[in-house]
Design a binder for these strands. Structure first.
Lengths: 102, 102
DNA sequence: ATAATAGGTTTGTGGTAAAAACTGGTTTTT
DNA sequence: AAAAACCAGTTTTTACCACAAACCTATTAT
């Protein structure tokens, strides 16, 4: 392995994507049709506050889209990955491969 | 993808390994024969203090071994990955694969 | 009436990455 | 001889960030 190849690779790692809980959310969103707050909550096993924070981060950075609606009188929030999100998720993994074992 | 398969996967991610600079160090150490402080410094492009901290973390968690010697009167420090380090690096990537796109 | 659900926000704690400054010596340059 | 640069860090400071716990408003189920 040459110096150039490894040089600065850690700088290419997108920290927003890199966080494990957010990685899991993005992974789920790449394959699932519909995903709502409760599904993520039970699937990931995190606290509500923590989940809300991660979702917020993903939304404000444009990686996911949030849809809020009322089902009757009950609020219901669902999420989907954006085109940018999908691209960045792919790109993240391309960069990570440079740090994986051969 | 089933719920069970994703459930809690983010908890399996070893945070010591997960940090990009440390990932890069471990990647280098899996293939390089000899690696010293200066090589890492110039290759990674981080500050000395930052590098020393990461090295410390890797040493105290048993992932790398530090060898200090004098070359004449000049101190020289070199590093190698431990058996545990190699195993954990492998394991980390196995776990990460569950979060990668198909 | 009470508890549970839904989808959060706010607050507080602790950990951590990273840069900058400092250290104490050695070697090289001028 | 003095200055600059190298070696391998430690210490200090800054600033962010993950996570948990508590709180909130409203609705629905028992």
């Amino acid at each position: 392995m040459s110096k150039k190849q490894v040089n600065q690779i850690h700088n290419s790692i997108n920290r927003v994507v890199h966080e494990p809980v957010r990685l899991a959310i993005l992974k789920i969103l790449t394959s699932a049709k519909e995903v709502d707050f409760n599904f993520l909550l039970t699937t990931l096993g995190v606290t509500k506050g923590n989940l809300a924070t991660h979702i917020n981060k993903l939304e404000t950075t444009g990686l996911i889209e949030v849809k809020k609606e009322f089902r009757g009188k009950v609020p219901h929030t669902s999420y989907k990955i954006t085109k940018t999100g999908r691209r960045q998720f792919q790109k993240y993994w391309e960069n990570m491969k440079a740090l994986a074992p051969e």
